[in-house]
Every structure is written in structure tokens, then in C-alpha cells.
Design a protein around this nucleic acid. Structure first.
Length: 264
DNA sequence: AGCTCTGTTATCTG
DNA sequence: ACAGATAACAGAGC
């Protein structure tokens, strides 16, 4: 489930190889997620390059190599990154891999909805620095949330939260968790929130992001036991707050789980 | 066998 | 023009 915290965790795995000098080990040109790379460009870019650093922004990642080589990674629905010991075996859905004298960096993506892209730039590319504020950034303010509400007043809260322009990193499970913690129904229209409800939404966005980063983001540990997270994956669950049945329905095109006795 | 799913984008429909 | 809905992408798991 690569959302904000999962993405951060996966990036941290590759970042542990900073300082190592890499060669291209595998590039699957038939895999949809790698098509943007180009064989010659990738071979040329990843020939004796040192990994310098890695950055994340919402669901996006950017790895900086020396020589002005930047690899942008999006994990889509089923993407994952891992760092392996030398000699580890690549598997069927490992579409891209780099090797150094010490480790192998692997991109795996069974459904191939992820995306790899190569950028050449002397410094961190300008577009990366201009991405909108993330929920845990200082610049993510109540004022910005109010402006976003103004702009998207007609949308249901669920699809509002999935908008990466305004809430980079928030994905399907985080949106459900945020609304459950804020006690707001996913189908409520953004414009229907009063000041107190909007304040609750703001608080829950930051709380869910912060705690997810401290657990999932840090070592892939599950979020706290009393979160909706543990109950939302299949039908028939009960609300940890009220003990009553959870509801499941498609809202904004995405499977949504909420507690009708808890959220209003 | 048939349906579901963590995400995004292109293409519809009203 | 525009917002919202839907299809498409590809595979694994139930």
C-alpha cells in the first residue's frame, strides 16, 4: 500500500546505499512502468554512478546520483523498493535493479502501475522543489486547507483528500483513517463543513500523517492498534470506537470504509 | 470463474 | 468549458 509513509519507508531502504557506486543490473523494457526510461539513456546514466541521496514528496521519490543523474520513482498500486545483499536473486516482477560492489537496489511492481523516469539536472530539479506543501510541512496551514475547501467545495470529503495537489501522499487507507478520526462521513461535501469540523479535519490529517510516519514510515510497523486501519480491508468489520458495523461503499471511484455510528 | 484492490490518467458524459 | 464518472492499465488473492 504505497502511500505517504510506505513511500518514505521504501525510499529509506535505497538511501542506505548512499555512497555506493552502481551499474545497471536489470531493466525490463517491456514492463510498462519502465518504458519511459529508454535502454540507451538508462545504460549510459547508470554506468558507474554513485548514489548521493534520496528524497520523498507524497507518493513520489527522487534519487540523486552523481553526474547530474536523477531517478524519479512512483510506486503506483503495487510497487516496492528493496535493498538486497549481493548475489540475491531477482524475481519475476523485479523490473529494474542496480548493483554496486556491496548491494543491489531493486524496484518490483507486479501490476506495473508505477513509473520510473530519468532526469538530467545539475542540481535538484526545479519542478521537484516547487511541488505543493505536504501535510507535515510548515507551509501546510489552516489557511491553505480553507482555500482548498473553497476551490473544491462540491466534492465528497473522500475524493477531496485523495487529491494529490492538496494532500500529497494521502491515499485510500489514509483518507479513510483521517475521516474516521475526524468523525466525518466520507460522503459529506467539503462545503458543508463548519469551522469546528474543518479544524477537526486539519488536526486528523496531521495526526494520521505524523503517526503513520513514526510507525509505517520508520520500520514498516503497523499503525496503532486502535486505528480503523486494521478493520477496513474487508467487509464485515466493526468500528473500534462503537463496536457497531462498519459500512463499505464506493465513493469517488474508490472503496471506502467508515463507521455510520461514529462519523457524521 | 469472477470479483476485488493500495494509483493515475485519458476519455466519456451530462 | 467544466466537474464528475468511468475505463484502462496487469497481476495476485480471495
Amino acid at each position: 500500500m504505497p502511500e505517504l509513509a510506505e513511500v518514505f519507508y521504501y525510499a529509506s531502504q535505497w538511501k542506505r546505499a548512499a555512497g555506493e557506486r552502481f551499474e545497471l543490473e536489470r531493466l525490463s523494457l517491456t514492463a510498462r512502468c519502465c518504458r519511459a526510461l529508454g535502454k540507451e539513456a538508462a545504460q549510459e546514466a547508470f554506468s558507474g554512478v554513485t548514489l548521493l541521496d534520496g528524497y520523498t514528496h507524497g507518493k513520489r521519490m527522487l534519487f540523486a546520483f552523481d553526474g547530474g543523474v536523477y531517478l524519479e520513482v512512483h510506486l503506483g498500486m503495487t510497487g516496492a523498493l528493496r535493498r538486497e545483499a549481493l548475489g540475491a536473486r531477482l524475481e519475476k516482477h523485479d523490473h529494474f535493479a542496480l548493483t554496486s560492489g556491496r548491494s543491489m537496489l531493486v524496484f518490483r511492481d507486479p501490476r506495473q502501475f508505477g513509473k520510473l523516469a530519468l532526469h538530467r539536472s545539475r542540481e535538484v530539479p526545479a519542478w521537484w522543489l516547487e511541488l505543493p506543501p505536504q501535510p507535515l510541512d510548515k507551509a501546510f496551514t489552516r489557511r491553505r486547507l480553507a482555500a482548498a475547501c473553497e476551490l473544491r467545495g462540491r466534492r465528497p470529503l473522500k475524493s477531496f483528500l485523495l487529491d494529490q495537489e492538496h494532500f500529497p501522499g494521502v491515499g485510500n487507507w489514509m483518507a479513510d483513517e483521517i475521516l474516521w478520526q475526524a468523525r466525518l462521513r466520507p460522503s459529506r461535501r467539503v462545503a458543508s463543513l463548519d469551522d469546528e469540523e474543518r479544524e477537526n479535519l486539519f488536526g486528523s490529517i496531521q495526526q494520521v500523517c505524523r503517526v503513520a510516519m513514526e510507525t509505517v514510515g520508520k520500520d514498516y510497523r503497523d499503525p496503532p492498534e486502535d486505528w480503523l486501519f486494521h478493520c477496513r480491508w474487508r467487509a464485515g468489520g466493526t468500528c473500534p470506537k462503537t463496536g457497531k458495523s462498519l459500512a463499505r461503499e464506493t465513493i469517488g471511484g474508490r472503496c471506502t470504509c467508515w463507521s455510520p455510528t461514529w462519523q457524521h
